[in-house]
Design a protein around this nucleic acid. Structure first.
Length: 171
DNA sequence: TTAGTGATATCC
DNA sequence: GATATCACTAAA
């Protein structure tokens, strides 16, 4: 069953753990299909979250975070790596969930590389998309939380937040 | 531990 | 126009 907009139209702190165990389906240009179970996500929530890209205000890049839930936010990190997020929650409230890790893949950039994600996906949606979507196959994950990683620039208050979600059954 | 890489934001 | 920054990876 494909996830609909309802699923994404909630607070990212609800969506992120719910995405654990879901299946990310990607159809490549040659029509081959890749299915990856999501094992790790992180929430980035609001302008007051100093780890969130939107914390410095609304810019052309972060504009999408203020937009419709279910949209894909892809951005280039360190000049090499594409990281993929999905926008969640209400319009005008910038928040997103980062896909950090999937089954067989450790690391957000390996994930996007394997799935051949690039900036052409930025602004696309997971809802009613022919190239990429997310399915619920009934698998129920055991969720464990942890502090987010790679956000040393954030303030102490937000560095310690347990906004990283991992499937305890794997790892 | 460090180099590589390039879009973005921020400073002229 | 210039430069500092960055939610990473691979090689050593």
């Amino acid at each position: 069953m494909k996830l609909k907009e309802d699923f994404f139209h909630r607070d990212c702190l609800e969506v992120a753990p719910d995405l654990i165990g879901k299946v990310l389906v990607r159809v490549l240009d040659d029509a081959s299909e890749i299915r990856v179970r999501i094992t790790e996500t992180e929430s980035y929530r609001g302008e007051e979250d100093t780890a969130c890209h939107a914390s410095k205000g609304r810019t052309p890049r972060t504009e999408i975070l203020y937009g419709d839930s279910g949209k894909i936010y892809v951005y280039l990190c360190y000049g090499i790596h594409w990281l993929m997020n999905v926008v969640t929650g209400e319009n005008e409230f910038p928040q997103a969930v980062l896909f950090r890790c999937g089954e067989r893949f450790n690391g957000p950039a390996k994930l996007t590389k394997a799935l051949e994600i690039d900036k052409s996906f930025n602004g696309e949606s997971f809802i009613e998309n022919e190239r990429i979507w997310i399915e619920d196959d009934g698998y129920v994950a055991k969720i464990k939380t942890a502090p987010r990683v790679g956000i040393n620039y954030a303030t102490e208050e937000y560095r310690v937040k347990q906004w990283r979600f991992i499937d305890k059954n794997l790892k």
